[in-house]
Design a protein around this nucleic acid. Structure first.
Length: 774
DNA sequence: AGCACGCCGACT
DNA sequence: GTCGGCGTGCTC
C-alpha cells in the first residue's frame, strides 16, 4: 500500500505529494487526513496523508508512524485545501496545516543516540534541552561522527487527564492508615471522586496507589476537558422577534443551497437574535452551524448568549484561549459533541460534517482576511463550504463592505434589511472642527464641547467611551533641534515610544532600544515624543479631571490572557466612568449606562495609502456612534476631525450608508478599484534593492507578455514600507475582471521562479485581494 | 526550508 | 596537510 503525503515544508519545490510505503500494521488504520511522521531526506517531518493507493513501487521509504487514531482532516477539508491553494497561491501544506489547531502541529528536535558525550550530556536526551553553546559542541561531535543524532518529531498536544476513584471495598483498609481511612470516609459519602479533589485532604499518590493495590478502590485515568466557559449557566431564553427580524429568519430558512444572504442591520437592530433563532432552526433539523465573529472583543457577550441558549452544544474557538483549550474545543467538535461553533477567522475550518448554516457577523471586518500564508479570506472559504454542504451563508453588518453591498445590489447576494432599532433613534452625532479649536487656542486632544460633555456625564454618574483612532497615529520620537526622527535601523519606519520601560520599539521587526536622553545625530537634549497614545490621553484626562475613574484598553493593557474580558466587565459593573481605548473598543459593546461617545482624530486614517481608508473611517465612526444610548438614557456622540466637510464624516454622522455607498462607488469606479476590479498585490523583496527592483520589472514584463485577458498591471513601484527587516521592497499591482485566468497565470509565474527563489536572492509574495498595502 | 555533499582559502 | 566557508542540489 502506498500513501500520498504532503510534508510540512513550505517550499515551492516540495509543494506536491510524496509517496511512502505503508507498513503492514498501519494498512487497516491509515486514512486520508491523518497526520503521519515520515522520513524526508535526512530529516523526519510531519506529513498529512491526502490519499492512498494499492500496490507498491521500488525505492519508496516506509512511513514511520501514524500520529492520529482517526484522521484530523475530513475529505471535505482536504478538498478545500486545494481550493485555498489555487485561489490564494499558497502551498498545499500551508493550507492543510492552517486547518488544524496549533496543538496538532509539531516541533522538531534531535535525540542524542549513541557515542561519546561531553560532561553533563546524557544519551537519550534531546538537543534542545541544552544551552546554545552546548548544542554547538554536540553538533560538532556529530559531524565528526563521534556521536549520532536522530531526528525526532515532538507533538505539542497534551491531553489533560484526571484519575477517577471509585470505592470498591471499604473494609480492606488498615485501621492504622489514617489518610487512607479518611479518603475512604469521603468516598463513602461520594462513591466516585476525582483524584484532584481527593488530594486536597492531603492524600498522596502512593497512598492512593496502595488503596488500589489492596482492592479498596478502582482507579481509571480519564480525559478532562478544559472548559473556559464552564461557569456559564444554560438558560432557555425565549426571544420575541420583531417583524423584520422574523422576516429575516424566514428568508434565511428558505434560502437556496449555497446561497449568500447579506443582512444589513444598524447597530441595535437585533442581528444577534436573528442568528440565534436561525441557528436554533438549523439544529432542530439535525444540522450544525458556524458563527464567525471578527475578534475576541466581540466574543464575551456573544459567547455568553450562545452558551446560554445552546449550553454544552457550543464550541468556542478564539485567539484568547490557550493552545490546550482550543484543542479541547476542537476535539469536542470532532467527537460530534457540538452543534454550533463560535469563533474567529480560523473557526471557518471547524471539522463539522453536517453544516446547515454559516454566519459571518460584522462581515466587513478585515480580520477575516489572514495576513500571512495562507492569505485566505474567511468569507470566501465560507462560501465554498456552504456550496459543498448545500447550505446558506449569512453575512451580517451594520456597515457592509462595499464588495458585499455591491453584490447584493446586483442580485448575487440576497439582501435583507433590518430597519427597526431597539432603544429608539440613533444618537445625535456632533461633528467638531478641530481647526476651530486650534484657532481658539485649544491645543489639547479634547475640544471644549467634548470635554464639557465628559464632565457632565461624570457628574450625572453616567459613562463615556473615548476612542482614539490610532492607525497612523502612534507616538514617535523626534529631535526638535535637527528634526531627525528615531527610525528603525532594519525597516523604513519610525520607532514607537512605549511608556512601559521608557523604550522605543519597531512594530514591524521587534527592534527595541531605550529612549535616548540626547539626539543621536546632533546631541541636542530637545528630543521628545510626538503624537498621542492612549497613555498620554489618560494622563491628560487625569490631570484635568483628577476624580475620573478611567479604564484604558490598548495593546499594553490587554496583552494578558483574559484581561480584555476583565476590563470590560469592570466597566460594565460601573467601576469606571470612562472607557478609553483604540479600535478594539469600537465594536459589539453594549453598555446601557454609556451616554457619551467621543472619537478623537476621526480622520487620522484618511491619509493612508489605501483605497479602503474612507470605507474604514465610515465604519469606525458609524459603529462607535451607535454605542451611545443603548439603554433607557439618551446618548450623544462627538466626532473630532480636521476634515468636517469630508463626505465620509458627513455621511457617517448622519448614519447614511446609502449616500456613502453611492459616493464611494463612484470614486472606486473612477480609480479602477474593487469591487469594479479584482485586485492582486505582488511584492518583491531582497537585501539588494536593485535585485528587488529588477525582479519586479522582470515579473511585470513576463506578466504583460502572457496577455491575461481583461487584466492590467501597475508598477513596479517601491512599497510604502520600502525597507522591512533589512529587505528592500517593490510592489506590482494587478487588476483583473477574470480572477480564474489570473490564478492560473500567477501559479505559472510562481512556478517559473521557483529555482531563482530557492537560491534566496529574493522573495516574491502574492496577496490576492489584499487589505494591507504596506 | 534544512541538510549533505563538494570544492577552494587560512590556520595548526 | 586539515578545518570550514557557503554554492548546489535533493528530498518519496
Amino acid at each position: 500500500m502506498i500513501a500520498h503525503v504532503h510534508v510540512d515544508a513550505p517550499v515551492i519545490t516540495i509543494d506536491r505529494p510524496f509517496d511512502y510505503e505503508v507498513p503492514e500494521q498501519f494498512e487497516t488504520l491509515i486514512e486520508p487526513g491523518m497526520r503521519v511522521s515520515v522520513p524526508f531526506g535526512s530529516r523526519r517531518l510531519l506529513g498529512i496523508v491526502v490519499g492512498t493507493s494499492d500496490g507498491t513501487r521500488e525505492g519508496l521509504k516506509p512511513l514511520e508512524a501514524l500520529l492520529d487514531e482517526e484522521s484530523s482532516l475530513t475529505e471535505e477539508l482536504l478538498d478545500l485545501s486545494i481550493h485555498v491553494k489555487e485561489t490564494t497561491l499558497c502551498f498545499r501544506s500551508s493550507a492543510l496545516l492552517a486547518m488544524l489547531p496549533a496543538a496538532l502541529k509539531v516541533s522538531y528536535d534531535k535525540e542524542i543516540k549513541e557515542g561519546l558525550v561531553p560532561d553533563g550530556v546524557r544519551l537519550g536526551t534531546h538537543l534542545s534541552e541544552y544551552p546554545k553553546d552546548v548544542q554547538s559542541v554536540i553538533l560538532g561531535l556529530a559531524k565528526k561522527g563521534e556521536l549520532t543524532l536522530a531526528p525526532v518529531l515532538k507533538e505539542k498536544k497534551t491531553v489533560k487527564t484526571d484519575v477517577l476513584v471509585e470505592l470498591l471495598d471499604a473494609t480492606v483498609v488498615s485501621k492504622r492508615a489514617k489518610k487512607q481511612l479518611e479518603a475512604i470516609r469521603q468516598l463513602e459519602e461520594t462513591p466516585r471522586m476525582y483524584w484532584s479533589t481527593l488530594r486536597q485532604i492531603g492524600l498522596t499518590r502512593p497512598q492512593l496507589q496502595k488503596l488500589e493495590d489492596i482492592g479498596a478502590v478502582r482507579l481509571t485515568e480519564v480525559e478532562l476537558n478544559r472548559d473556559p466557559y464552564a461557569t456559564i449557566e444554560q438558560v432557555k431564553e425565549t426571544v420575541q422577534l420583531n417583524d423584520s427580524q422574523a422576516r429575516a429568519v424566514q428568508q434565511i430558512h428558505e434560502a437556496d443551497a449555497g446561497e449568500t444572504l447579506l443582512v444589513h442591520g444598524v447597530t441595535g437592530s437585533g442581528k444577534t437574535e436573528v442568528y440565534l433563532e436561525s441557528i436554533g432552526q438549523v439544529i432542530d433539523e439535525g444540522k450544525q452551524a458556524i458563527l464567525l465573529v471578527p475578534e475576541i472583543s466581540l466574543t464575551p457577550m456573544m459567547v455568553k448568549r450562545f452558551k446560554r441558549r445552546f449550553g454544552d452544544r457550543v464550541a468556542v474557538l478564539h485567539s484568547a484561549l490557550s493552545k490546550g483549550e482550543k484543542y479541547d474545543e476542537w476535539r469536542k467538535i470532532k467527537r460530534r459533541e457540538v452543534d454550533v461553533v463560535v469563533g474567529a477567522r480560523s473557526a471557518i475550518f471547524a471539522p463539522l460534517d453536517r453544516l446547515g448554516l454559516i454566519i459571518l457577523d460584522e462581515e466587513h471586518e478585515t480580520t477575516y482576511k489572514q495576513e500571512e500564508n495562507p492569505r485566505y479570506h474567511a468569507r470566501d472559504v465560507a462560501i465554498w463550504r456552504a456550496r459543498y454542504h448545500g447550505c446558506p451563508v449569512v453575512l451580517g453588518s451594520a456597515t457592509p463592505s462595499l464588495e458585499s453591498y455591491a453584490r447584493a445590489q446586483k442580485g448575487v447576494y440576497r439582501y435583507l434589511h433590518l430597519k427597526e432599532r431597539y432603544g429608539g433613534e440613533m444618537p445625535p452625532v456632533h461633528i467638531i472642527d478641530m481647526r476651530r479649536e486650534l484657532a481658539k487656542g485649544n491645543t489639547t486632544m479634547f475640544s471644549e464641547e467634548l470635554f464639557n460633555g465628559i464632565l457632565d456625564r461624570i457628574e450625572k454618574k453616567e459613562q463615556c467611551v473615548i476612542l482614539l483612532n490610532r492607525r497612523g497615529f502612534t507616538t514617535f520620537v523626534m529631535c526638535r533641534d535637527c528634526g531627525e526622527g528615531m527610525t528603525c535601523p532594519h525597516c523604513a519606519v519610525n520607532l514607537t515610544y512605549h511608556q512601559h520601560g521608557d523604550r522605543l520599539k519597531c512594530h514591524y521587526c521587534g527592534y527595541e532600544v531605550g529612549m535616548p536622553s540626547t539626539c543621536p545625530s546632533c546631541s541636542s537634549k530637545k528630543i521628545k515624543q510626538f503624537g498621542s497614545g492612549t497613555q498620554k490621553i489618560e494622563t491628560e484626562l487625569l490631570n484635568r479631571i483628577p476624580e475620573a475613574r478611567i479604564i484604558r484598553m490598548d495593546q499594553d493593557t490587554t496583552s494578558r490572557k483574559g484581561s480584555h474580558e476583565q476590563l470590560l466587565r469592570r466597566f460594565e459593573e460601573g467601576e469606571a466612568d470612562i472607557l478609553l481605548g483604540t479600535q478594539m473598543i469600537a465594536k459589539g459593546l453594549d453598555f446601557p449606562n454609556v451616554t457619551l461617545v467621543g472619537v478623537l482624530a476621526a480622520d487620522a486614517t484618511l491619509g493612508m495609502p489605501d483605497f479602503r481608508a474612507t470605507e474604514r473611517t465610515f465604519q469606525l465612526v458609524t459603529q462607535v456612534a451607535g454605542r451611545a444610548g443603548r439603554g433607557k438614557l439618551p446618548g450623544e456622540a462627538f466626532v473630532q476631525t480636521y476634515n468636517p466637510d469630508h463626505y465620509v464624516i458627513e455621511t457617517a454622522s448622519e448614519h447614511d450608508y446609502e449616500s456613502f455607498f453611492a459616493k464611494e462607488m463612484g470614486l472606486r469606479q473612477v480609480g479602477n478599484h474593487p469591487p469594479y476590479w479584482f485586485l492582486t498585490l505582488v511584492t518583491f523583496s531582497a537585501e539588494n534593492s536593485l535585485v528587488a527592483k529588477s525582479e519586479a520589472e522582470l515579473f511585470a514584463s513576463d506578466f504583460l507578455q502572457a496577455q491575461v485577458e481583461n487584466s492590467r498591471l501597475n508598477g513596479p513601484m517601491p512599497a510604502p514600507l520600502s525597507k522591512l527587516k533589512n529587505a528592500y521592497r517593490y510592489q506590482v499591482f494587478i487588476k483583473t475582471k477574470q480572477p480564474e485566468a489570473l490564478y492560473v497565470e500567477l501559479a505559472r509565474l510562481q512556478q517559473a521562479r521557483a529555482k531563482a527563489i530557492s537560491k534566496k536572492e529574493y522573495q516574491m509574495s502574492i496577496d490576492v485581494n489584499p487589505y494591507v498595502f504596506m
